[in-house]
Amino acid sequence: MSTGMLFALVGALLFTMGAAGVALPGAPLRRIVAFNVMGSGALLVLVGLAQRGGGVDPVPQAMVLTGIVVAVAATALALALARRLGAPGARAASGDDD
């Protein structure tokens, strides 16, 4: 088995674990971490499978970078929501942390 395939399989495993964590009920923070595991898994698959050809393919690298940016943004939003939900007096919350 090539290294790339190994990466891809680990990525798939991570994705499955992460997806289960996001889908199943739990504390928001736990689910946010699970989402990051899931996202990393998907990106790992992307990089892993693309390496089969031998040489370095720049396209997946660019995709992974973009994917990381998207994941960071989503995580930030999720954290902001979770924090506000947890804050005392969530109803009156008017923070500027969107």
């Binding site: 891809a8 990525g11 798939a12 994705f15 992460g18 997806a19 996001v22 889908a23 928001p28 689910r31 989402f35 899931m38 996202g39 898994g41 998907a42 990106l43 698959v45 992307l46 892993g48 499978l49 693309a50 089969r52 396209v59 997946p60 995709m63 994917g67 989503a74 939003l77 999720a78 929501l81 979770a82 939900l85």
Partner: peptide
């Protein structure tokens, strides 16, 4: 909103994995 967020992230996560497999 949080529930919606997790649903939408799960959905796009699955989509991204699909994209990765197709690219591979």
């Amino acid at each position: 909103a949080l529930r919606y967020l997790f649903a939408t992230l799960l959905g796009s996560g699955a989509f991204l994995l699909g994209v990765a497999l197709i690219y591979g």
